[in-house]
């Protein structure tokens, strides 16, 4: 285990503002995540998994407290610096405008290019490496809407890889995938944490997969947030409460 956490939650409260009203979902959390961790975020619908991911990626401001990325508050990063620290994979569909899988992956290198977005041979090497790690080399010139859900998901993950970030956040990446693709996806994430020492947080409703592949679980219920190791999950009360009792 590394001694310094790459992500640290310092007494944070997460939520969002809706028509002047503040809705807080997760309150006063203190947590640390380290390089090489593959953390499964589990919890029932609406409990705040997506809010957590959006706050952690800087897309939503935290209501209280501070998130530290490599010991520096997230609010002190400018967008381009943050883009080199955290990469996200969301559920939203993108496509059209002649966008190919390659184009999306190369967007991951945008924080490293000049203002004309010209890709150098170095940029291209990184993009190619990301493409081959995710196993989408023969599909890279396909338009996005020609890709199956599994390939699309791998493309977005390759984009996140091309960002060369120590941290990767994925919001329900397994939601629309078939059985085999789900396993391939988690195997890929496992490989990234083991070989590239990334810190990967992935939310999912596939509790069996999370148990099988993740090293740690972030269990979120309406009353509690707990970070546990996957080996102790089956005896954990909160994990049982959010559906673990059916496994």
């Amino acid at each position: 285990m590394e001694n310094k956490p790459c992500i640290e939650f310092k007494n944070i409260t997460l939520g969002y503002k809706k028509t002047g009203e503040t809705i807080s979902i997760l309150k006063n959390i203190n947590l640390s995540f380290f390089e090489g961790d593959l953390i499964g975020i589990v919890g029932l619908n609406g409990v705040g998994k997506s809010t957590l991911i959006k706050s952690l990626s800087g897309l939503l401001p935290v209501l209280k407290g501070e998130i530290l990325i490599d010991e520096k508050p997230i609010s002190n990063y400018n967008l381009n610096e943050l883009a080199k620290k955290i990469a996200i994979v969301l559920t939203e569909k993108i496509g059209g405008f002649n966008l190919t899988a390659f184009d999306v992956v190369s967007a991951g290198q945008m924080p490293y290019t000049n203002s004309f977005n010209k890709l150098s041979s170095h940029n291209l090497e990184i993009i190619d490496a990301a493409i081959s790690t995710c196993g989408i080399a023969e599909h890279q010139n396909k338009l996005l809407y020609e890709l199956s859900d599994g390939l699309f998901q791998k493309t977005i993950i390759a984009k996140a890889l091309a960002q060369q970030t120590p941290i990767m956040l994925l919001d329900e990446p397994s939601a629309f995938l078939d059985f085999a693709s789900k396993h391939e996806l988690f195997l890929l994430l496992k490989k990234l944490t083991e070989e590239q020492k990334k810190c990967v947080l992935v939310s999912s409703h596939d509790l069996d997969l999370i148990l099988k592949y993740c090293t740690k679980l972030l269990v979120i219920s309406t009353t509690k947030v707990e970070l546990i190791s996957s080996s102790e999950a089956k005896t954990n009360a909160t994990f049982k409460e959010i559906g673990g009792r059916f496994i």
Binding site: K54, A83, I88, A107, G108, M110, F116, Q163
Partner: peptide, 20 residues
Amino acid sequence: IKPLNALLLGENYSQNIGVN
């Protein structure tokens, strides 16, 4: 040039690749 290319990926992804 960068924003025009990034905006095609939508709000969240363009922010995440460093484009306001």
